[in-house]
Simulated assay, not measured.
Amino acid sequence: MSNALKVYIRNSTLQRLGQVSEYTSLTVVPRFNAIGAIALELPADSPSAPLLVEGNGLIVKTGSGDTVLTGPIRTVDWSRSESDAGGGQLKVGAVSDDEVLARYACWPAPTAAIGSQTAPLYKIDAASVETGMRDLVNLNAGPGAQASRRHALLTLATNGLRGGALVRQVNQFDNLLVVLQDIAAAAGLGFRVVQVGSNLQFQVFTPTDRSATARFSFGLGNLTDANYSTTPPTCTRAIVVAGGGTSPRVCKVYDRADPLFPGLTLEQFVDQTSVDTASVDLAAQMDQAGTEALTNGAGSGSLSISPIDLPNLRYGRDYNVGDTVSAQLRGGTWYTDVVREVTLTSSVGESSVKATVGGDNADGAVARIYQYIARIKKDIGRLTTRKAA
């Protein structure tokens, strides 16, 4: 990554309006399969300040012209102190374009009017995981959505048919971003929404394993600091139960030993009782539910490192969010995992890169609490759905 990050302003139709050349502080946080963030500080009397308003957006690029992150402005805060000789300071906050996926719910019948939403579930039966993910986006927010729900700027990249077959039920009105995160995590895929010309494009990709080439250690001279912590699993045995209402009850157990906590068994009930056990794809649906429960409940190691950009190993060129990298821990042990997020900071005369490898997209303990609450909420939703049906 070039040390000089450049910031541009775009309007609501994604047309570039100008450059912010006078910022005093910039923090950019791209995240894997999650919403990134941009924080910008500058003098309030700067020439570009009048363009930094809600409704416009930011484009952050490296000095070499590669896009780091783009997204809409969400907050503009002004402050001035008695000692400030100028017009005060502006603090501008933006989110990545991935946030568009969080705006939508998964309707059980996406092409039908709200008064015709009688089905309690949306059924995915796709030849590939990518196809299923694209269908969800297309029918709920993209070109294939109802006119009243369609996002005018959202398009879909060419289908690469990544991942195996996908058979899954989505509870009515589950959040689109959360559903995509669950599906992608179980399949080992990545997704993002990026600005391509005058559109926002939904893309699915296969993360790259760069663990043999993107290696960080104090001995190699490309680290300034590192911190490693572990979070225990919440599920190592998924007990999936289907049917039991209008069809016979079927139970199946899925085990996955946790490498960080060997010998630890944690059972979790996975409610699939809304699935008719006479369905021809019963096994596939139960397998998918078991895999997602074990993936979401796996223990994790979280490594925060501050790598040094060297000529032969630079962020944005030799590794990126979603890629697998290696870092050497105490005792010479090499840790290999996915780059979940990267924090890029730039100010007058200084720049830095800080990467979070493995773990969650937020602080481990807090993220696990929210995951647990989300799972309880999802289970309650399924119970409500069955009662209504």
Results as ranks from 00 to 15, higher is better:
G71P: 09
G331H: 06
Q272N: 09
Y8D: 04
G160A: 09
A157M: 06
G115Q: 05
D271H: 11
G301A: 02
V325E: 11
Q15M: 02
S229I: 05
S25D: 05
G188D: 14
L189S: 12
N3H: 09
I369C: 03
T70F: 01
T234R: 07
D182R: 15
G331K: 03
V275T: 12
Y254C: 09
P233N: 07
V95G: 00
V339L: 10
P207T: 05
L344D: 02
R249H: 09
A214Q: 11
K252S: 07
P262E: 01
V76G: 07
E99M: 09
A187Y: 10
D125G: 13
D98G: 01
R237Q: 10
A226H: 06
A184P: 11
C106P: 04
A187Q: 10
D281A: 06
T265G: 01
F269Y: 11
T206V: 13
G358K: 07
N138M: 04
R103T: 01
E82S: 11
S79K: 10
W107S: 08
T356D: 03
L58K: 00
A109P: 01
G93V: 08
R210D: 04
T277V: 07
P307S: 07
S81R: 09
P30Q: 02
V366T: 13
N171W: 09
S351N: 13
I380Q: 13
A145C: 05
A278N: 15
V321C: 08
G163M: 14
A4V: 14
A283L: 04
A185I: 13
A257E: 14
G381W: 02
T75E: 10
A283D: 11
A293M: 14
Y370L: 13
L101H: 03
N320I: 00
V28R: 08
S352D: 12
Y370M: 12
P72Y: 06
S64Y: 08
S247L: 02
G93F: 02
L90E: 00
E292T: 15
M286E: 08
D318Q: 03
R134Q: 05
D276V: 01
N171Y: 13
